[in-house]
């Protein structure tokens, strides 16, 4: 096995591990907001590691360009997606977990609920 093949293997395994952690996190965390933490970060890094592995394996410039584009778009869209889900949950009045200690949006939340009634 060449060093390149080992590097590719390690990257693929690490990528899959992070993707798995993201899935486990979604299942395990208490509320929507904590779950979005799990859905955004490990999923993004996991994908980037997989893309790196594929780029190393293929090596062709045109393939690498496409993979880089995928990574860039993921970095732009993943946090926006998490933000939209979090915002929707907040506006729908989703309860925060009992581990929440400070909620500086609480006042706004009451205001929004009243307006929608």
């Amino acid at each position: 096995m060449s060093i390149l093949e080992i590097a590719v293997g390690v990257l693929v395994l690490a990528g899959v591990a992070f993707a798995t952690l993201a899935a486990l996190g979604l299942q395990q965390f208490d509320d929507v907001f904590a779950r979005m933490h799990a859905a955004t970060k490990p999923a993004t890094l996991g994908l980037v590691l997989l893309l790196l592995a594929v780029a190393l394996r293929l090596g062709a410039a045109d393939a690498v360009a496409k993979l880089a584009l995928v990574a860039v778009l993921q970095f732009i869209t993943a946090p926006v997606g998490a933000h939209m889900v979090g915002r929707a949950a907040f506006r729908a009045g989703t309860e925060l977990s009992s581990r929440t200690e400070i909620d500086e949006l609480a006042v706004e939340r009451l205001g929004l609920t009243r307006r929608s009634e």
Partner: peptide, 21 residues
């Protein structure tokens, strides 16, 4: 990623203190 990964692997700990700031 390390933080979230550790959090997922060690459930039922007392470290999670959520807040909206």
């Amino acid at each position: 990623n390390a933080v979230v990964a550790w959090e997922v692997l060690t459930p039922n700990n007392d470290r999670v203190r959520e807040g909206v700031v």
